[in-house]
Design a protein around this nucleic acid. Structure first.
Lengths: 128, 128
DNA sequence: GTCATTTGGTATAGTAACTAAACCTTTTCA
DNA sequence: TGAAAAGGTTTAGTTACTATACCAAATGAC
């Protein structure tokens, strides 16, 4: 099966324009509630804080999020999605929902459990 | 599920040393029969011929394959795995085999069919 | 209280894995 | 026979990182 080469190209998410997989994944990890620190985000994404600085800077330039100082810790920065960022977030949720609809159209609930069991086995095998 | 961030790091394949995912994937696509042209390989991998030139050059430097002129078409180059390259190929096949063993330990044949059906749905969804 | 350590974030250089475009050389074929 | 197609290389640029060095603010052991 061709699992490589997947999800490489930028896609359009609503009015937010073209976003790379990393960009939309970062937006997804911040969430529409916002109030996430840089280091917390690095943990969620499983990358270094340097990587987060870079992608967050790009998303800030694109006006998809805002950086603001942490109220009680002046070292820290908290991130919040802008309206445009929230729109991208919702558009991405829709993509997820459409995938699950498609999956449910083809597999029953118990079959989806089996699919997820297989996926976990695949992920496990790729990890070592 | 965390499908991103997978299969990013170089791994050891027998005596062939550390190989990046792209490198081992290229070796897999050439196969132990060899005799593959650059452009044929680009098609198999789904990348441009420029990309193939680059990765093949690196594999040639690492002595995992050899370039030779095509016997009947002097424009073309044919690729063949060296012994070290074939060893990496076999080591990679073993990884595949171990994955399927693990999968069969957890899922029956009909459940594996369901898993693959789910995977196809996932791939389809990522494509559009 | 103060000073070393930890934590939060940034900056910079380097790498992998590409694409796109320009280019050169053969081959094909109308 | 000459234009177009096909095979391959080169170069510059992009994305998505890591590692390292760095600075400022917070913590906490004494």
């Amino acid at each position: 099966m061709q699992l490589r080469r997947l999800e490489r190209h930028p896609k359009r998410f609503g009015d937010a324009g073209l976003l790379t997989p990393s960009e939309i994944h970062t937006i997804e990890a911040i969430g529409d509630e916002g109030g996430v620190r840089m280091s917390e985000l690095a943990g969620r994404l499983g990358v270094t804080k340097g990587a987060v600085t870079q992608i967050v800077s790009r998303l800030e330039e694109k006006e998809l999020l805002t950086r603001s100082p942490h109220p009680h810790d002046s070292r820290a920065t908290v991130l919040t999605l802008s309206e445009k960022g929230k729109e991208a977030f919702r558009a991405h949720e829709d993509v997820h929902d459409r995938f699950y609809e498609r999956l449910r159209a083809r597999l029953s609930d118990s079959e989806i459990d089996i699919f997820e069991k297989g996926l976990r086995t695949l992920i496990e095998s790729l990890e070592d």
